Computed example of a mutant assay.
Amino acid sequence: MSEEKNVSAAEKMLGDFAPRLLGYTDNVLFGDVWEGKELSRRERSLITVAALVAGEHSNQLKFHLNYAKEHGLTEAELVEVITHLAFYVGWPKAMTAIMIAKEAFEQEK
C-alpha cells in the first residue's frame, strides 16, 4: 500500500510550474524559518499578519489570518492588531485588511 504524500497549499497552487519557488516555500520558509526556536509560532503569525497588512499584501493575508488562529491567536486579537496598525501603516491598508479578516472569519463559521 502506498503512502499518500502530504501536499502543501503552495504545491497545490504551483505544482510543477515553479518547482524551485515551491521548494523554497515548503522547505525554507515553512520548514526552516517557521521552525526557528527563538520565536513561537504564535509570535511569528502575529509578525507575519502585521507585515502583510503593512505591505498591503492582501492575497496572502487570508491564509495567514487563519494560520494565526491555528497558532493560538483569536479573532478578537487579530482584529485588534489590524485596528492598531491603522494608525501606523495607514487607514486604507487597515480597512482593506479588516474586510479580508471579516470575510475569512465568516467563512470559518
Rank of each mutant, 00 (worst) to 15 (best):
T74F: 02
V53A: 04
F30E: 06
E80V: 05
L85P: 00
V53G: 01
R41H: 12
A86W: 02
K93A: 15
A50P: 00
I100T: 14
N66F: 03
L61D: 00
L14P: 08
I100M: 01
D16E: 13
I100S: 04
H64Y: 09
A76I: 10
P19T: 10
A51D: 09
L73H: 02
V81L: 11
A50V: 07
I98H: 01
A76F: 03
T48E: 00
D32P: 09
R20V: 13
E38Y: 12
N27L: 08
M13Y: 14
I98K: 03
L22W: 07
E75V: 09
W91P: 00
E43H: 12
T96S: 15
I82A: 03
N59R: 13
S45W: 08
E75I: 04
A18L: 15
R41I: 07
H57V: 14
N27K: 13
V89P: 03
K37P: 06
G15W: 00
T96A: 13
I47W: 07
Q60L: 11
I98S: 04
H84M: 06
A51I: 13
G72A: 09
G31F: 03
V81A: 08
A51K: 02
H57N: 14
F17M: 14
Y88Q: 07
V33C: 11
N59T: 15
V28H: 10
G15H: 06
E35S: 12
L22F: 06
L39M: 11
A101F: 01
L21S: 11
R42P: 04
A18D: 09
D16T: 15
E56Q: 14
W34E: 08
E77P: 05
T25V: 10
